[in-house]
Amino acid sequence: MTDPPVPYRVLDTRPETADTVTFRLAPAGRALPPFAPGQFAMLYAFGVGEAPVSVAGILPDSGLMHTVRAVGAVSRALHRLRSGDVVGVRGPFGTGWDLPLAAGDDLLVVAGGIGLAPLRPLVQAVLAAPQGYGRLNVLVGARSPDDLLYREELGGWALPYCGVTVDRAGAGWPGRVGLVTALLDQARFSPAETTAFICGPEVMIRATARELLHRGVLPQRILISLERNMHCATGHCGHCQLGPLLLCRDGPVVGYDRAEHLLTVREL
């Protein structure tokens, strides 16, 4: 382990869905080096522990935005944060989304559930410099309309295509029901000149990547963000191994050309 957590102050918190909260942080003193879209931070809840949380927003003056789902002791402690509270932050860690790789390409951003969080700063980066890329498509799958992240923001993105589909529709949902891959028919992209960015549950990642390969997207242009158990984030604790990959160091963003054969092995 190298550097201990740096104190960051909570600016505000916003409930995103029933089990998800978004908060914005600003350095309480010294700031960490800048984060890139796709990288993650280790967030330290005092006395409880740390959790890896991808950066959902890169704010001015070294501010960070995170969206956290309550799944364990640490994330539940993070849910209790209120404006003015202080958390510890380490980072930035891991590989980010390789945007230079996508220069000039059509872009497919495919998100499942809370997988939209690490993709949000990527979309923002592309929207800030649209001339460098082809058509930007955002495809979002969620459990239900109530589980959709960044609802208002999604509607405000000016994109060639932005589609949302849900597993289960509640009353009055006018949109699509089904898998996120079903939205690919409406997306506007030329497969051979497309870079895809996928984040979500591994089953969803595999299904989406397979469909994209079938349509002619190159495996090395399919970038996926993977999850394993991360403790140290510095490549020293061994927990986040996926075969040859140490995901805190070689990931979380990995090319499908490197990951495909690893994702087919059970319990790897």
């Binding site: 006395g47 522990g49 740390e50 394993r228 403790h231 140290c232 604790c237 061994g238 927990h239």
Partner: peptide, 30 residues
């Protein structure tokens, strides 16, 4: 391989982070 332990004292205002050997044979490792 190591894991991390976070501990606090009785007041709850002092916390420590320790690293401890861990084995990939532990069920919780992954």
């Amino acid at each position: 391989c190591t894991t991390t332990e976070d501990i606090t004292d009785l007041t709850g205002d002092h916390a420590e982070r320790w690293s401890r050997w861990e084995s990939c044979y532990d069920l919780d490792f992954s």
